[in-house]
Simulated scan of single mutants.
Amino acid sequence: MPRVEWTLGCLLAAALLAGCRDDDGADALAQVPVEPSATLVTVDDSPITRAQLELTVERTLGESAPLFANDEVERKILDSLVASRAMALLAERELDAGERAQLDLKAQAYREELLVRHYLEQHATPEPVTSEQVADYYQRHPEEFGGGVEKSFEIIASDQALEEPQRAELIALLSGAEAKGRDWQKQVAAWRAAGKPLEYRSNRIKPELLEQPLRGLVESTEAGSIAPLYADGQLLLVRVTGEERLPARPLSEVSGEIREKLAPQALKQAVKSLSEEATRQVKVQYSSR
């Protein structure tokens, strides 16, 4: 039950730091030896030691403990531990056998979690990210560092949902010779003046930044080519007018970013290797095998 008591102890400590003075607690702190195992107070014969008090002070005040942990603060935190222990003892008396077993499982799991964390801190030493790994990542992911392809394209699109007769009319219009002319913007202006529900747009962007289905259409269309698309009630005609391969930022500029990306992978691999090694050092027997 340590996790429950520690958490509740910290909460109670925060609440009691502004509380009234308890002379019994002050006397206990003044008279009891400073050894960690020394008992400061008992609650129904359950001892609270100086080591438990010091741990709660550290957990409550964190890095500020050396600055603020005076006798008055320690006394109030001791009061909180007494209240916490009293509630824990009363709660334990109310548990039935099933609840007690479940609590024991949780306490065991938390203890194991702390032990695993300690073991990893002592033994998990990830290999440093090498320059070769950085260079390899840089070569395999140029798009992350400003590289990739940028395309310029024009679009003629319907500006409203199309009914079947209107859709067939516009498909015929955009399949004709006029749609193959050089100046799409001028041509669309003429069509709009004639009442056709069409609009003109142009863009220059990396295709992967577009949303589907336009992204797939632009990616698959070569410079100088025209491709049609009808999706979600909208008619599109796309002409790719240019394509440029962008230079990536130099490796020297992005190597730090790459190392930050690869560091968690190195730690994950170190933990995996350590897990395998730990399993080999103990006897493992599955009951079903």
Results as ranks from 00 to 15, higher is better:
M1L: 13
R3F: 05
V4Y: 10
A18C: 12
C20A: 14
C20V: 14
R21L: 09
D23G: 10
G25E: 12
A26I: 11
A26G: 11
A26P: 05
L29N: 02
A30R: 14
V32Y: 02
V32S: 08
P33W: 12
V34I: 14
E35H: 13
P36A: 01
P36V: 02
P36Q: 04
T39F: 03
V41Y: 00
S46F: 09
T60R: 11
G62R: 03
G62I: 02
L67R: 15
F68K: 11
D71G: 13
D71C: 06
D79G: 12
S80Y: 01
V82Q: 07
R85F: 07
A86K: 13
M87Q: 15
R93F: 01
L95K: 11
E99P: 03
R100Y: 00
L103Y: 01
L103H: 05
D104W: 04
K106W: 11
A107F: 01
Q108F: 12
Q108K: 15
R111Y: 06
L115C: 06
L115F: 06
R117V: 04
Y119I: 10
L120Q: 03
A124Q: 03
P128Y: 08
P128W: 05
T130N: 04
Y137M: 11
H141Y: 14
E143K: 15
E144N: 13
G148T: 04
V149I: 14
V149C: 07
S152D: 07
E154S: 08
E154A: 07
I155S: 09
I156T: 01
A157H: 09
Q166R: 07
Q166L: 09
A168K: 09
L170S: 03
I171F: 13
A172N: 09
S175D: 14
G176R: 08
A177V: 13
E178A: 13
E178G: 04
R182Y: 09
D183T: 02
W184E: 05
V188F: 00
A189G: 11
A193W: 05
A193H: 07
G195A: 05
R201K: 13
Q212I: 05
L214D: 00
R215G: 02
V218F: 01
T221G: 01
E222C: 08
E222F: 02
A227F: 04
Y230C: 06
D232P: 05
G233T: 01
L235G: 02
L237E: 06
V240D: 00
T241Q: 00
R249E: 13
L251T: 03
E253G: 03
E260I: 07
K261N: 06
L262K: 06
P264Y: 00
A266P: 04
L267E: 12
K268D: 12
Q269V: 00
A270W: 02
V271C: 07
S275M: 08
Y286P: 15
